[in-house]
Design a binder for these strands. Structure first.
Lengths: 146, 146
DNA sequence: TATAATAATTTTGAAATCGAGATAATTTAA
DNA sequence: TTAAATTATCTCGATTTCAAAATTATTATA
């Protein structure tokens, strides 16, 4: 049974992918219906919940290449949902800052977003969700080692 | 605590996304190093493990728009890893079939692929993996309801 | 049997993402 | 202090994906 661990891992990989994609598909629909794509939403939500961010850090947090950040921030700036702020201490750095309009947008959208996710996860009990969180935490972190 | 369920679900959504992306990032690197992109690999693996598939079904199984299937199948056909077979019973339908070269490719790649996934998941014990599989199964399936 | 509705695939144009290189600013080291 | 290395952002070209429309084939209906 040396093979057993590998096939269990493969199975886990498959159900992980399915679960992620299935849930995301629905979440993305709501975001899209509100005129943003998932990446734009992720950036805006980051700024809303975590405050101003240097462009570069955005890339690290939502896993996006530097060229893509410029693109997404452009889009959001064109829509008036964020603005660029030059850093006074380091002129290489530009901060992205959510605008009042952006805040209003997130405030309008977020409750629906959160509730939809809750609905999509209603097949698990509260206890099961906590179990899943613990297991997935373990799974997510150590991948950096390889 | 009416809010508690929602915030637990949000947390689960976040760790699910992180785990998926973290693992996928590494898996994709190996695939890429072998000259395919993740979508091409998914199509080829599907054909290898499940046999010939009508174009349309491929889209359903790996969650891809019809136009994208044409594109990916073109790519794989150009690389000699699959071929199109006209359906004799319904001339609207085209089957994608893996070639011998394609089979050889998967046979070469798959063990490394599987072992890498096993490594990436080594932070969980066998028992934990089985738990995670059960929980994620529950999570993945019912999303179709919404 | 025609006609209309449905279905499968392809085509097309636009959007999103990446990676590599360019530019500009800062820091380190000689 | 100058030169080299590093860092942050942006630009550009290529790839991948989608959505909508076009094409071709089949099935259902009048």
């Amino acid at each position: 049974m040396e093979n057993n661990s590998v096939s269990t891992s493969l199975k886990l990989f498959i159900v992980l992918s399915r679960a992620y994609k299935a849930i995301n598909e629905h979440v993305n629909k709501v975001i899209h219906a509100n005129g943003l794509n998932p990446t734009e939403f992720a950036v805006l939500e980051l700024l809303y919940h975590k405050g101003d961010q240097p462009m570069q850090q955005i890339g690290g947090k939502i896993l996006l290449a530097s060229g893509s950040i410029t693109y997404v921030v452009d889009k959001l700036e064109q829509k008036g949902l964020l603005k660029r702020i030059a850093c006074p201490k380091d002129r290489r750095v530009t901060y992205a800052q959510i605008t009042d309009e952006g805040k209003k947008f997130i405030q309008d959208i977020f409750p629906e977003h959160a509730q939809q996710i809750d609905k999509l996860m209603s097949s698990l009990s509260g206890e099961e969700k906590l179990q899943a969180i613990e297991l997935l935490k373990k799974l997510g972190i150590p991948a950096g080692k390889f």
